[in-house]
């Protein structure tokens, strides 16, 4: 019994270590952040419940991504969003590639990326920044924001795409953020 709970704790520790990878993998299948967050939590509960199924020495990410794929499918089914999902084949490719990434600790890298993002957000033009805020902070669709600030929807999409591109290239130039 004791051994088993030690094992469970260890599996949980692996999960925490790779939580960022899990989150990004889930997001790639389910880009809605709120939904993805729910799914990640579900994944954690399943990982805990089925910790004994994980064999030490095997690829943890591959194991956890399989659970994650299942949970994403379940979520989309419940939310009646199945027409909006990638094919199983594509999901598998994404999972394989993400699982194959260097197995270093995610946490520190994440810290550097987040700090870089904060710096880069400050460099955005005010309108781009507003758009990013309305979409990511307030959870609005770009079209809704466009309506709100009197833009054509297309202008909002273009501005948002550019803002993202700017942020990506800015983050890449920041220290300790070699891209994945």
């Amino acid at each position: 019994m004791k051994e088993s709970s030690d094992h469970t704790t260890r599996v949980q520790q692996y999960f925490v270590q790779h939580a960022a990878s899990v989150k990004y993998f889930v997001l790639s299948l389910l880009p809605n952040p709120a939904g993805a967050e729910d799914v990640v939590q579900e994944v954690f509960l399943t990982v805990t419940a089925k910790a004994n199924d994980f064999e030490e020495g095997t690829n943890f990410k591959a194991w956890v991504f399989a659970i994650a794929r299942f949970k994403v499918l379940e979520h989309l089914r419940q939310a009646k969003r199945e027409p909006y999902r990638l094919s199983e084949e594509t999901m598998e490719l994404l999972a394989d590639e993400a699982a194959g990434e260097s197995d270093t600790d995610d946490l520190e890298k994440e810290q550097h990326l987040a700090a870089a993002l904060s710096r880069c957000l400050n460099k955005l033009a005010p309108k781009s920044r507003l758009l990013i805020e309305r979409v990511y902070r307030d959870g609005l669709k770009p079209g809704t924001v466009a309506e709100e600030i009197g833009w054509k929807p297309n202008a909002a999409y273009v501005t948002l795409s550019r803002a993202r591109a700017t942020l990506r290239s800015c983050i890449a130039k920041q220290p300790n953020t070699e891209s994945a």
Binding site: K23, Y24, L27, S28, P31, P33, A36, L94, E97, A98, L113, A114, L117, R164, L167, R168, I171, S179, A180
Partner: peptide, 9 residues
């Protein structure tokens, strides 16, 4: 994956 990373961040 690169865009998802920014999206998540």
């Amino acid at each position: 994956r690169s865009r998802i990373r920014l999206h998540g961040l």
